[in-house]
Every structure is written in structure tokens, then in C-alpha cells.
């Protein structure tokens, strides 16, 4: 009962944040409502018992991605005066909404109709130590690949965003 209530509230929070990000005009408002969605999802992970993932979600998405997005918005002067409504939507925006509503509809119909091969509700307590051992044991190769990916992304982002005259100076 309480679990259902918590789920309901969290899903409303998450979806409301996402919808606000889709509809608001001011870009910074969009980014802030996006972070509401991230928090809602993190709380949902916590309520599902995935403590480590939930807290990493907050650390990475709120602490890094949301901050990065607002910095990018300010650097590209997107937070300035309110843009008229016709300027926030792309050329084929009606088609876009039709397509996304259709995708959502198809997904939900497929979900409700299909029998899910699930054995039910196991309340398994996963400790951080177990996660660490799994990451260092069977999942060590993906971990290394993610490390390389992050390094490459870091260097790539710095080089891409570096001013042109500095690139030529080298």
C-alpha cells in the first residue's frame, strides 16, 4: 500500500519533470525540470533497493550532467529573452509529437499485452562490497572499457570545445 503510494508520487514527479522539460520555453527552466526528473528516478532506484545506483545517479546526473547542461546554455546565450513560441519548436514538430505519442502508445500496449516471465518480488539486499567484487571480478573488462571511454570522452570534449586560436597555437 505505502509502496504503491510512494511509487505513484515518484512517477508523477518524474513524468512531470520530463513533461516540463518538453514544454517550457526558457532553456534553464527546462534544465532544472530535467534535474527534477533525475532526482525522481534516483529516488525510484532507492525505493527499488538499488542504493548504489540511485546515489550514483544523483552524483553523476545532478552533480555533473545538469551542471554541464546549464553551463552550456549560459555559454551559448540560450537563457536570454524569451523566444516566441514558433521559435522553440523545430520545423516538423507536429509530426515529431505524433511519432513520439505513437511510440509511447505502441510500447505501453505491447507491455500490457505481453506476459512477463517474472517470478515475483525478491527483496535481495545488495551491499556495495558485492558490487565492488562483481566489478573487479566478472565485470572487469566492461569496467576497463568504460574507463577508456571516459578518458577518451574527456580528452575529446576538451579538444572540441577548445577555442580555435589555441588549437592553432600548438
Amino acid at each position: 500500500m505505502i509502496e504503491g503510494l510512494i511509487f505513484g508520487l515518484l512517477s508523477i514527479l518524474t513524468l512531470a519533470g520530463a513533461a516540463a522539460a518538453a514544454l517550457l520555453r526558457n532553456l534553464v527552466h527546462c534544465a532544472l525540470s530535467l534535474s527534477v526528473t533525475f532526482v525522481g528516478l534516483a529516488l525510484m532506484y532507492l525505493s527499488l533497493g538499488a542504493q548504489f545506483v540511485g546515489l550514483s545517479q544523483i552524483l553523476v546526473y545532478i552533480g555533473a550532467v545538469a551542471i554541464l547542461v546549464v553551463f552550456a546554455i549560459l555559454l551559448t546565450r540560450g537563457a536570454g529573452a524569451l523566444t516566441p513560441h514558433r521559435l522553440i519548436a523545430a520545423a516538423g514538430w507536429r509530426l515529431g509529437w505524433i511519432a513520439s505519442v505513437a511510440v509511447g502508445f505502441v510500447l505501453i500496449v505491447a507491455l500490457v499485452r505481453s506476459p512477463l516471465p517474472v517470478s515475483g518480488d525478491h527483496a535481495v539486499k545488495v551491499t556495495v562490497q558485492q558490487i565492488g567484487q562483481a566489478l573487479m571480478g566478472p565485470y572487469v573488462l566492461p569496467l576497463e572499457i568504460v574507463a577508456i571511454l571516459l578518458t577518451v570522452a574527456l580528452i575529446g570534449a576538451v579538444i572540441v570545445a577548445m577555442p580555435e586560436d589555441q588549437k592553432e597555437m600548438r
Partner: peptide
């Protein structure tokens, strides 16, 4: 179990 992580997550927000 992940208390220190919670502290850093909160510090990020």
C-alpha cells in the same frame, strides 16, 4: 551501506 556516497551526492546537489 553507501553513506559516504550519499554525502557526496548531496554535496553535488
Amino acid at each position: 551501506d553507501a553513506g559516504i556516497l550519499l554525502f557526496f551526492a548531496v554535496g553535488a546537489s
